[in-house]
């Protein structure tokens, strides 16, 4: 991903060379995750007796991760705005 981005930025690859294929893949990206999800449903026996705890930990941890990311990014944005305002004040 990083290499492709760099190649686009230095114009080694022109966007119109890959635009069509990239947009088709991105537009239907969701479809690509259906087979692994179906596969997961077939392998729940791997978790044994701890399947409920395992899923509960994922749900709690994902919620905490989401909230921590959101909170810290929002704080940095607020800080950037404050610094920006101070700089523009006479």
């Amino acid at each position: 991903m990083l290499i492709l981005l760099v190649l686009l930025l230095v114009k080694a690859i022109r966007p119109h060379h890959i635009d069509r294929t990239a947009h088709i893949l991105l537009a239907y990206m969701g479809v690509l995750f259906i087979p692994p999800i179906v596969d997961v449903a077939d392998h729940t026996e791997l978790l044994g007796s701890q399947s409920f705890t395992y899923v509960l930990i994922i749900v709690i941890s994902t919620t905490l991760t989401f909230l921590a990311t959101l909170g810290s990014a929002a704080l940095v944005m607020r800080f950037q705005r404050m610094v920006g305002k101070k700089r523009t004040q006479p």
Binding site: M1, L5, D19, T21, A22, L25, V31, L32, F33, P35
Partner: peptide, 17 residues
């Protein structure tokens, strides 16, 4: 279909660009 996940992930660079 799963084989396309990696190329699709790489194509996210286009969206960023």
């Amino acid at each position: 279909l799963m084989m396309l996940i990696l190329p699709a992930t790489i194509c996210l660079a286009v969206m960023v660009y």
